[in-house]
Amino acid sequence: MACPGGPLPPLMLLLLLPPLVPQASLGHLKKHSYTHKGISEPCQEHLECQSRCCVTNSLSPQKFCTPQTIFLRCLPWRKPLGYSCLEHKECHSSCCAMTENAMQKVCTSRTIFLQCIPWRKPDMDFCSHHDDCNSRCCIRLVEGGHYRCVQQSGLIRQCLPLVD
Rank of each mutant, 00 (worst) to 15 (best):
L8A: 14
P161E: 12
Y34I: 02
T99I: 11
R78T: 08
N57M: 12
L20F: 13
H92G: 05
C85Q: 04
L47Q: 05
L13N: 15
C159P: 02
D131S: 14
T56M: 11
T66A: 12
G144R: 07
R73F: 09
F113Y: 10
S94E: 11
L47V: 02
L20N: 09
H32R: 09
H92C: 02
F126W: 12
H32A: 03
Q68M: 11
C74Q: 01
P4H: 10
H46N: 15
R136Q: 06
C43A: 02
G82A: 07
N134K: 08
Q68Y: 04
N101Q: 12
P122Q: 04
A97R: 08
L47N: 08
N57A: 11
K31H: 10
L29H: 01
L155K: 13
K37C: 00
E100C: 06
P161Y: 08
L160T: 04
T66C: 04
Q23M: 12
G154D: 01
C95E: 02
L15V: 06
P122Y: 03
S153G: 08
L47D: 11
Q158D: 14
V55R: 09
S84W: 01
L141I: 05
L72H: 12
D164C: 04
G5Y: 05
S51V: 03
C74E: 00
D125A: 15
S33W: 05
C53R: 01
P9W: 07
V163T: 12
C107F: 01
G144W: 09
S135V: 02
T111Y: 04
L47A: 10
P61L: 07
C65L: 01
A97L: 06
E48G: 06
H32F: 13
S93V: 00
D131W: 08
C96K: 01
P42G: 04
I117S: 11
D164M: 08
Q62V: 14
C96I: 04
I139V: 13
F71H: 07
T69N: 07
L47Y: 03
P122M: 04
Y147W: 06
K37V: 00
S93N: 02
R110D: 02
D132Q: 05
K30D: 03
K31P: 00
G154E: 02
L14E: 13
I112W: 09
K105Y: 09
P61W: 05
P19T: 10
G38E: 08
L20I: 13
Q68V: 11
L114H: 08
D125T: 14
I39F: 04
W119P: 01
H146A: 12
P76R: 00
C65E: 00
